[in-house]
């Protein structure tokens, strides 16, 4: 479902080469996999490569049975749309759309009719306890509400893989707990969630933690 083979990413900075990620091979099991490490350890680089935002210098990324690292930008967009969802730390809603339209946006890209889109988005919002905020724009929503809407949007096309980059990083503890609970709920089945975090408390809710340092994978800690 989600696998890396000898994945490396180098960045050229002036005359020097920075090895942001070095030879990482891993087959992500179902459940939540947290990625931890200090700044510059390669966590974000790995997430960018897994989500198909960037292309590796070496190695392969396989998602939903397809090798995605060598695909075109548009082909990777297509994989992202149908097989994965991404939850950013902040600024993750489209500002001109209201909550329900934000949730339904991936279905618009997938070509679904307006009725279908809004019906499914409404169901999701209801299950997230946000139906009453459906017509509100991002600027009218709290950080926690925005993040819950971003999760609903990531889930609307029922992807097998979710990526989350510090999803509670900008939230207060109560909102953070609600967001984590939602993520937990939606990774009960076969779904995989790859979660980058600095927060040990957040990492504790995962099934395993992968530790990185200086671009290298250090160790895996199985929690469940």
């Amino acid at each position: 479902m989600l696998q890396t083979k000898h994945l490396s990413k180098d960045f050229i900075q002036g005359d020097s080469t920075i090895h942001a990620l070095i030879d990482f091979s891993f087959d992500f099991p179902k459940g939540i996999t947290a990625i931890m490490g200090p700044s510059g350890s390669g966590k974000t680089t790995l997430l960018n490569l897994l989500a198909g935002f960037d292309q590796p210098s070496q190695g392969e990324v396989h998602l939903a049975g397809k090798r995605i690292d060598n695909l075109s930008e548009d082909a990777r967009s297509d994989i992202r749309l149908h097989h994965s969802g991404f939850i950013f730390q902040n600024w993750s809603l489209l500002p001109t759309l209201n909550a329900i339209e934000n949730v339904a946006f991936p279905m618009l890209l997938a070509g679904a009719s307006k009725e279908k889109r809004l019906a499914k988005a409404e169901t999701l919002l209801e299950s997230f306890g946000l139906k009453h905020r459906a017509k509100h724009k991002a600027s009218q929503l709290s950080g926690g509400e925005q993040q819950r809407i971003a999760i609903a949007r990531a889930l609307i096309l029922e992807p097998q893989v979710l990526f989350a980059d510090e999803p509670t990083g900008n939230l207060d503890s109560v909102s953070g707990e609600i967001v984590l609970e939602l993520l937990r709920q939606h990774t009960q089945d076969e779904r995989r969630l790859v979660l980058v975090t600095h927060d040990a408390e957040v990492a504790k809710m995962s099934d395993r933690i992968l530790y990185f340092r200086d671009g290298k994978f250090e160790k895996i800690e199985e929690l469940k």
Binding site: F53, E73, D74, S77, F86, F88, W91, L109
Partner: peptide, 9 residues
């Protein structure tokens, strides 16, 4: 963000 969600060029 649109591209990250899956919008094509």
């Amino acid at each position: 963000l649109m591209r990250a969600i899956g919008a094509k060029q």
